[in-house]
């Protein structure tokens, strides 16, 4: 009985969504007039190369126009990592038994391959967040790539340990640096996270004012945070607690 009610509810929801999106033509231009922007998309597309000299206008939106929102987003990620650690680490502190990895020992092929790939993955992640204002990608994506590199090492080597202190300090300092950049804008230019006036030229590596700096901090923060989350999740003991 309950099952049928749920099916009816889902069908109603699907029908409503379908009716709503029938009214929104796919591929239609909804950005407004680009030469005289009166909508937010046209304004961003115009301001991003002109006043900010940032090639990637999505980065310009995420870090500059909606920079405060991104600070909140980083905070949400930090809270999730903290919450996960506090939920899962409670018992581990009490009994000091050796923490065993869940995974089986990997073959020498996998171990050698992981050793070769690990620095390359880190390099790719750093490249992605340093070039966040020029090419697709940015701090969050680069951080995720770095975390995949650490994940490769964590599942390949049973006794691979990330240096917990270094990770925590990097994460905290990167988050603090983000706020300090925001305060710099507040004191120098009058509003929180305000960008500098000297923004360089379009498509240079150092362009966009404070945008690359903020995205590098976000990249470090997200990379260390996701690594910590993966580390905690992999350290769970397979047995059941009593």
């Amino acid at each position: 009985m309950k099952k049928y009610i749920i099916f009816i509810l889902i069908a109603i929801l699907g029908w409503t969504l379908a009716q709503t999106f029938k009214a929104i033509p796919f591929g239609a231009d909804r950005r407004g007039d680009l030469s005289n922007p009166n909508k937010v998309a046209a304004y961003y597309l115009r301001q991003s190369p002109e006043t900010l000299q940032t090639a990637n206008s999505i980065t310009a939106i995420v870090v500059n126009f909606r920079g405060f929102d991104t600070l909140g987003e980083v905070t949400v990620l930090f809270l999730a990592a903290t919450g996960l650690a506090s939920i899962l680490y409670r018992k581990e502190e009490e009994d000091k038994t050796e923490v065993e990895r869940v995974s089986l020992p990997s073959s020498s092929l996998v171990r050698t391959g992981a050793k070769i790939l690990f620095p390359l993955i880190l390099l790719l992640g750093i490249y992605v967040f340093v070039h966040g204002h020029l090419t697709p990608g940015g701090g969050f994506q680069g951080g995720a790539i770095i975390a995949t590199g650490f994940l490769l090492m964590l599942i390949t080597y049973k006794h691979f340990e990330t240096n917990h202190n270094v990770m925590v300090w990097l994460e905290s300092l990167a988050g603090l640096a983000f706020v300090l950049v925001g305060l710099y804008g507040l004191f120098m230019y009058g509003s929180f996270l305000q960008n500098t006036k000297s923004v360089g030229t379009l498509n240079d590596l150092i362009s966009g004012g404070l945008i690359p700096l903020i995205y590098i901090f976000i990249g470090i923060k997200v990379g260390t945070e996701l690594t910590n989350i993966l580390d905690i999740l992999l350290k769970i003991k397979p047995g059941r607690e009593q």
Partner: peptide, 10 residues
């Protein structure tokens, strides 16, 4: 949008 590219000024 129709015939659109990524919003990146490469």
């Amino acid at each position: 949008i129709q015939n659109g590219t990524a919003p990146i000024f490469s």
